[in-house]
Amino acid sequence: MGVFENKFHDNVVIASLDKLLGWARSTSPWFFQFGLACCAIEMMATAASRHDLMRIGMIPRSSPRQADVMIVAGTVTLKMALRVKKLYEQMANPKYVISMGSCATSGGPYWQHGYHVLKGVDLVVPVDVYIPGCPPRPESLIEGLLKLQEKIQSERPLTRKTA
């Protein structure tokens, strides 16, 4: 670290505030606990002891106010779409959305003839990571979450953006 080298004790870490914030935020993205269809079963399996989401810092929260990440797990009907949007709006910034499975991504098996199915949750909320699968295995979900963590870590909230 250049000029700061060997100026502090061993138990002191030096980093830019941006990076530190990114590290802190990326390693504790609490997710909003709600499932819409069979993908929710895989999400539950991922959160349970075998795959243990807690080890990558993900804790399920039951309130949108306390959550950073919304995992849209399952088929979004048009009736639910309005509620998903409302829940997203209730989350505090910065917030992220993961579209889990075919249904949430594109309507899945209902992409054409499902008269009441939303053809992709990105029609109502901005999506950060799409996870394919029907339903995706826990490994896929974890991969998607790690991708999201990479994204959060690469953000620099304190750096002034130059045009």
């Binding site: 779409a81 309005l82 054409q112 003839h113 008269y115 009441h116 029609l123």
Partner: peptide, 25 residues
């Protein structure tokens, strides 16, 4: 009424576009 034979899917629902069945599929 969705299960009637003459049902036509509404075009939008609260501003969300509801795609219709494509012809020739």
């Amino acid at each position: 009424w969705p299960l009637r034979k003459d049902y036509e899917v509404q075009e939008t629902y609260h501003g969300i576009v509801v795609p219709k069945v494509k012809e020739g599929w």
